[in-house]
Design a protein around this nucleic acid. Structure first.
Lengths: 261, 261
DNA sequence: AGCTGTGGTTCAAATAATGAACCATAAGCG
DNA sequence: CGCTTATGGTTCATTATTTGAACCACAGCT
């Protein structure tokens, strides 16, 4: 693997830790030599991607990504556009609504509007959403070209709960249903007791870039309500797609796109 | 230079471009071979730090920094803490107030609250603030250890306007004044017709991490008003420092700190 | 004292980065 | 139409960088 790749993987590892980490831990987690890890950290620090607490000598994510993120957002303001829709959806559904974005081969949570109810689902910003085990993942994949679906399902699928579907063939059935409906539904895929529905935000040529999802406790949700939420998520996702990419060809087609209707 | 450093420098260059850039331009701007630039871009793209527009083949900042920035902010929420203060200051002063953060050896703008007035100063988020030519830069440097001041003033100082002070000795005088007052004042340092005042946000041991600055058109500002704004900026910066780092030792001292009184 | 854990450094050996020359394609033009 | 000049992208022998076992220095503990 390239040096750059390893350094960025270190950054990724560091970002997924709950707390600041010491040199030895970082080296071990990244399967790097201590000397190598240190050189990477020093180099990343020079550019502001990590910073070292001078007292504890531990490392954390620096402020350079903040600057880059701001520039990215200024030029490509998905969040600014999406948040009002997410918020509206959270208010009307009174359930937790979250927005995810595809990045570096994975779907990660970029914004969450919590349900106002005491009994609610919580989703962490920054958390990853496995393709086969979350409504967001299914919604994303269902609208991807076949090649990407094959690639995602070629790897072994992790079983997060008793109900996680790990058979690629069954996942494909769910993808077909999702493509047909326009939104996905996931029962207890990642965590027990949670039901979610999601719909993809897509480029003008139909390729997904992220998802809008609604998550609710299984105990209080009827089948009809799930479908209603799904339809609302799809409407919001489409509205975001349209606003994000301008009004040029709201929804085009790419050859491989999956459609049933 | 290390490969990682070169790749991150490429990312930095890309971030400072106004628009998306092609391979040849990027290679030229970074003084890299086309093949090398391409390998870097591919590697950065794998990790989501850049993305390529599939139609124009041009590259832009990707969404990975957005994820990292969110995590950084979640754990280290300077902005969340600072924004209310900045906003209050913008309202009370009716001038443009901005917040900068030190990162990768430079001071960059991370938040701006615009003046409600029609005639106002505009500051771009993401823009860099030279140490010798802006109120923020002076305020930051004035509270740095002597070694860092020497380092910053060792390089040639760029002349942005007719009034930019580029003589290191004169800059040192301004730093002494700033340290004595607790806030800096800059007249026409970066742009003509602008007067700014700034104060540093500091760690508990006194080291600056960023600045709060107020910028106003020279034409409508009296000397008394500038000093009043400066005092307000200093109060806001101290309040942010205190809230950001908890209430432990609101303002300590480091041996090398500059004091005139 | 000695032990064990940190963070951090060194330098010969191993490996990955480099870039001149290359291809393919597209646009501009006499 | 063919020629020129751009572009993005690729190859592979040469070269420079990365690598990691062994090494300090220090701190806390028994």
């Amino acid at each position: 693997m390239s040096t750059i790749g390893k350094a960025l993987a270190l950054l990724d590892t560091l970002s997924r830790l709950d707390k600041e980490a010491g040199l030895t831990d970082i080296a071990r987690l990244c399967a790097l030599d201590k000397a190598t890890a240190r050189r990477f950290l020093v180099e990343l620090e020079k550019h502001g991607f990590v910073e070292q607490d001078l007292e504890t000598r531990r490392y954390r994510i620096g402020s350079a990504p903040v600057r880059l993120a701001r520039i990215r957002e200024a030029r490509f303001p998905l969040l600014r556009i999406a948040i009002p829709f997410i918020r509206t959806l959270a208010e009307s559904s009174t359930e937790t609504v979250h927005l995810s974005e595809f990045s570096a081969g994975r779907l990660s949570t970029v914004h969450v509007e919590d349900s106002p109810r005491a009994h609610r689902i919580t989703v962490d910003v920054g958390s990853f959403l496995p393709f086969h085990a979350t409504a967001s993942g299914l919604a994303f994949l269902a609208f991807c070209p076949q090649a990407e679906i094959d690639e995602a399902l070629a790897k072994p699928l992790e079983k997060f709960t008793d109900h996680t579907v790990v058979d690629p063939q069954l996942v494909r059935v769910m993808l077909d249903e999702t493509a047909a409906r326009g939104f996905s539904i996931s029962h207890n895929g990642l965590e027990a007791g949670v039901v979610s529905t999601a719909a993809p935000i897509r480029t003008p040529n139909g390729h997904p870039i992220g998802c809008v999802a609604i998550a609710a406790p299984f105990s209080r949700i009827t089948k009809a309500a799930i479908h209603e939420f799904g339809a609302q998520a799809a409407a919001a996702a489409n509205a975001i797609s349209e606003k994000y990419y301008g009004s040029e060809r709201p929804m085009g087609t790419i050859p491989e796109i999956r459609r049933t209707d």
